[in-house]
Structure formats: C-alpha cells, structure tokens
C-alpha cells in the first residue's frame, strides 16, 4: 500500500520522540517498507552539531542505530535551511519529494521547536503534502 515512510526528527529532543518512532517502526514492519529519518539544520552552530556536516553524520548514526534496534530498513536525510524558524515546513515538504516517501509519521510538533501561533509543523504538512500524514499525539 505504501512505499516509504518519512519521519521528521529533532535530534536535540530525540528522547521525546519515542511514540512517533515506535509507530513508524511498527508500520514499517507491517508493510515491509523502509523508513527515512529527516533532520533539518541551519548552517550556523547549534545545540546538536557545530556544522551541517557534523549534523549529517549524527543523523546518519541515529538512523543506523534505530534501524538495528528496531529491525527495520532505515536511512536518513539531512536538509540545510537558511532560516529554520520560518522555512522548516517548506523544507520538510521538499524533503518529502526528494526521498519519494508516500507516508509521513510525525509527532504533532517536532519537539524542541516550541509551539507557536503561526501553525503546527504537522498541521502544515498535513494540509500541504500530497501524501498521507499520520500525526502522533
């Protein structure tokens, strides 16, 4: 039914993502399809990594770890955004097209990006992405 699952993650708050990650892994095993973890970083040093390159390697390690732990086929994609406070949603949509996923599993807000009045990230994706979006609360 599905080909690939995209799971947006925030490495700074990976501990709070467990429910979404478990759900994605269950679906992955059920449909026997791969999962791609997508992370977004700015070019400036942040809490997770000093550079985009370091961010990429950490995300990669995270995906390998998750894949081994949960027994699923996992990969990762790191996207760089000039202005993550604003561009996060659009960057997620472009990541979706880039990896060709047709199902998104995500926490209601990418944790760590505090809720704000403009839109929830999952809300934006659900209304703008051309694929199914499962919002985990």
């Amino acid at each position: 039914m599905y080909k690939k699952i995209m799971v947006p993650v925030d490495l700074a708050h990976a501990d709070r993502l467990d429910k979404a990650l478990t759900t994605a892994a269950d679906l992955s095993r059920h449909y026997k399809i791969p999962v791609c973890y997508v992370g977004i970083t700015a070019t400036t040093p942040g809490p997770v990594a000093h550079t985009p390159e370091e961010f990429k390697s950490k995300l990669d390690a995270f995906a390998k770890d998750e894949g081994a732990k949960r027994g699923i086929d996992a990969s990762s994609l790191a996207k760089v955004s000039h202005d993550p406070s604003v561009d996060l949603d659009e960057t997620l949509v472009s990541a979706l097209n880039e990896i060709g996923a047709d199902l998104v599993v995500m926490a209601s807000h990418v944790p760590g990006v505090p809720e704000h009045i403009f839109a929830s990230n999952a809300g934006y994706l659900a209304s703008h992405a051309p694929v199914s979006v499962l919002v985990v609360r």
């Binding site: 040093p45 809490p47 550079t51 390159e53 390697s57 505090p114």
Partner: peptide
C-alpha cells in the same frame, strides 16, 4: 569527526549552543 564541509579547525569547548537558554511558553 567534527570537521565541517572539508577541513577546518574546530575549537573544542564544553559550551553547547543554547545551554543557558530558557524555553517556555
């Protein structure tokens, strides 16, 4: 492994970006 795109010379510090920040609503 911290090297940015290609080579550079990272400063090692204990400080983490945002460690003194307050996140609240």
């Amino acid at each position: 492994m911290l090297s940015p795109d290609g080579e550079a010379n990272i400063i090692e510090t204990e400080y983490e970006v945002g460690q003194d920040n307050i996140q609240t609503n």
